[in-house]
Computed example of a mutant assay.
Amino acid sequence: MYHLIRLRWGLAFYTGLFIAFLYGPFVVMGLISFQQGPEGGPQFPIIEWSTFWYQHVIGIAPVSRVAPLPIGEALFRSLSLAFATMVVSTVLGTLTAQAFRSKFKGSGFVFYLVVLGMMVPGVLLGLGMALVADQMDVARTWWGTAFLLHVVYTYPFAFLVMLAIFNRFDKSVEEAAWMLGVPPGRTFRKVTFPMIFPGVLSAMLFAFTLSYDEFPRTLFTGGSEVTMPIAIYGTFAVEIHPNLFAFGVLTTLFSFALLTVYGVLMGMSTRRSRLRTSGIQEDVA
């Protein structure tokens, strides 16, 4: 009994250290972002609290020696690239996982071929794509070569998420619809897709966030029009100012907002799936 108590306290202590290590940088970033402007770099403790650097990020602060962050067009590129990657990767992942519901020859080889995109280091893959593009005289752009690598990277994650969802899927629901004479296409739209929609949301979230934050693959293949992570890195490499931390806080809050929307949609989808399962015969008739 004594050893069990010690084990619990040890696990609790380890969990606390892990949480502190995970969220400590965000707390420090948030504190430094509220320091006084317009002069000076990061400093702690805070002498005077201010929201100057948040105003600086959104462009309403007075003119100072600190240049605005080059995030306008870069942020648009990152969001556009992440959205396009999310759509393509989720569709490909869902279709591939659907195919793996039935055994076929060479399925093991295809499986490892798909997940290879997430196993190869991003630096090597980006460098390889850059060399291939140069040899073929193809321009490196964020909407072309970088988009292709983003899909190669995020597609396996979407596939694995959907594969787990389909492994827990009750095939008897589809079989009931087929016995009622419902065509396969209508069965997928009216029965299968509503039930796997929580998994689709998870795959979309994975693909979007991974693409939005992707750095090494984009660095080698994005061309001269940089995305947000590369633009932030270029600023960070020259000189650090609190506007970077203010932007980091806003970006984190944006991520939390996405998670909130994801949670709401997940809850709505789960409730609808339960209702649809209970009245499946009326729905597909």
Rank of each mutant, 00 (worst) to 15 (best):
F52D: 00
F169V: 09
F76A: 10
G41P: 03
L259P: 07
T187G: 04
G24D: 07
I196V: 15
H150K: 02
I196A: 06
T260R: 15
D283S: 11
Y14F: 15
E73L: 13
R6T: 00
F18V: 14
V115P: 02
Y2P: 01
Q98W: 12
G40R: 04
Y112Q: 13
D134R: 13
E225T: 11
P216L: 15
G185K: 03
F83K: 03
K105D: 04
M118H: 12
F44Q: 00
Y155V: 02
V27M: 10
E48Y: 06
V151R: 00
A176N: 04
R77F: 04
A231W: 05
T270R: 15
G199T: 11
P42S: 12
I5Q: 01
E48K: 12
A203D: 06
S64H: 03
V138K: 07
T154G: 05
M204K: 08
F109Y: 14
F34D: 01
V238K: 14
L22P: 08
I47D: 09
S89C: 05
H3A: 14
L205Y: 10
A99R: 10
L22D: 10
V66S: 05
P198C: 13
R6Y: 00
A74V: 03
A97S: 05
Y262V: 11
P194Q: 07
M268P: 00
R101M: 14
V57P: 05
I280L: 14
I196P: 12
Y2V: 08
V87M: 12
M266H: 12
L163I: 09
A164F: 10
